[in-house]
């Protein structure tokens, strides 16, 4: 595969990352709330998924309805849509946390969900301990964490502060650490919810480079964001979601046309 430049639309090798979603429907049962009052309350709200009253009197939210998606290595998909349109739910489904009610999800490759930077972070533990813990949760073995430790520590730029408990850090420092660990995992599929701005201007620049590198290394990126500039910067394809229904996937060049449509259906 090293001879010459590959055309971007080369058929996927069997060992290459891909995502295939067919007819995905996701429903959430909502427990512990009065279904009627919740329904009354939500009837006035324009955003959000579709609400149904389930047979048992509990409320079910249909977060995603009949979504199809095919992504191959090299695809960088931007998800847009207003709050509650199902973007994060789709990312969680792709990460394997939510299982479909209908339809099928197939993901090949090592998945790195960067949905929440504070995942597995313990404020009372030191920076180094947090790196270790987060790395283990991300699927690294204890040895792999040791091997990557220097690189991660250097990237945070926190130096001696790494031996201090995380609660003594400023929020910018915490974000640096969380970001460094979260992006240290080699992944084929990168799921990213909102490109959270972290740290000061210097760090923003390094972080941006690291993310670009990660996007190039990772086979597939799925990014949910409201920031259209960010989508244009990182993505080559875009999909709009509206009350749990996905539009077809279009090139990022057609982003404005996609947005101009009154609805995705």
């Amino acid at each position: 595969m090293s001879r010459g430049a590959k055309p971007p639309t080369a058929p996927p090798r069997p060992d290459q990352a891909f995502i295939s979603v067919r007819g995905l429907t996701l429903r959430f049962p909502v427990y512990g709330y009065d279904a009627k009052s919740l329904k009354k309350h939500l009837a006035r709200v324009a955003v959000g998924g579709q609400l149904d009253q389930a047979r048992h009197g509990s409320t079910t939210v249909t977060a995603i309805t009949g979504l199809d998606l095919e992504l191959r290595a090299g695809d960088r998909l931007g998800l847009i849509g207003h709050n509650g349109s199902g973007k994060t739910t789709l990312l969680r489904a792709l990460s394997g946390a939510y299982e479909p009610d209908e339809g099928q999800i197939e993901v090949r490759g090592k998945i790195a969900p960067l949905l929440d930077l504070s995942l597995g972070i313990d404020p009372t533990a030191t920076g180094l301990e947090n790196i270790r813990l987060r790395g283990r949760i991300a699927g690294l073995s204890a040895r792999q964490v040791d091997e990557k430790m220097d690189e991660i520590a250097a990237f945070t730029g926190l130096g001696p502060f790494l031996a201090m408990p995380l609660k003594t850090y400023s929020s910018g420092m915490q974000a640096r650490l969380a970001f460094a660990v979260a992006t240290a995992v080699d992944a084929d599929v990168l799921l990213r919810d909102e490109w959270i701005a972290v740290g000061d201007a210097d760090f923003q620049k390094i972080a941006h480079q690291r993310l670009l590198g990660l996007v190039e290394r990772a086979g597939i990126l799925v990014l949910a964001s409201h920031d259209l500039d960010l989508i244009r910067l990182y993505c080559n394809k875009v999909m709009r979601m509206d009350t749990g229904v996905g539009s077809e996937m279009v090139s990022v060049k057609a982003l404005d046309e996609l947005l101009a449509r009154p609805s995705v259906r």
Partner: peptide, 13 residues
């Protein structure tokens, strides 16, 4: 790189 495959289907089976 380690390749892990996830295959998640509908729960109504």
């Amino acid at each position: 790189m380690e390749i892990t495959e996830h295959m998640l289907r509908t729960g109504s089976r």
